[in-house]
């Protein structure tokens, strides 16, 4: 459950990063439709809120929010390092998780 929240945080941050066109060019094979791009910021924030709620309901709000901040730091650092050196691999953690789930 806590791992799911970490992945949601990562996905939310990735969506927020993709709102900027240089990262879209680096990560995605081609530019997505403008409507999709416009949906990215609300999606990103929604994912972050959902992960916070998940942690809050699972661990209680004090510990949940502390864990959420830690997830943003850890997930965000991993994302930024991947964006800088291997941008194509940024969706990999999510793909791995989806693969394990299926």
């Amino acid at each position: 459950m806590n791992l799911a929240a970490l992945l949601l945080t990562y996905a939310g941050l990735l969506a927020l990063a993709l709102t900027r066109s240089p990262y879209r060019r680096a990560v995605l094979p081609r530019e997505p439709a403008p409507t999709l791009v416009r949906l990215l910021p609300p999606c990103g924030w929604l994912l972050l809120v959902v992960s916070a709620c998940l942690l809050g309901s699972n661990l209680g709000w004090p510990l949940g929010l502390v864990t959420w901040c830690a997830d943003i730091a850890g997930g965000g650092f991993a994302l930024i390092m991947l964006l800088a050196w291997h941008p194509r691999l940024t969706p990999l953690p999510l793909a791995l998780a989806a693969g394990l789930l299926l």
Binding site: V66, T67, A70, D71, A73, G74, F77
Partner: peptide
């Protein structure tokens, strides 16, 4: 979470 705190300490 301890590893997360450790990571934030390294950061």
């Amino acid at each position: 979470l301890r590893w997360s705190f450790f990571t934030m300490g390294l950061l």
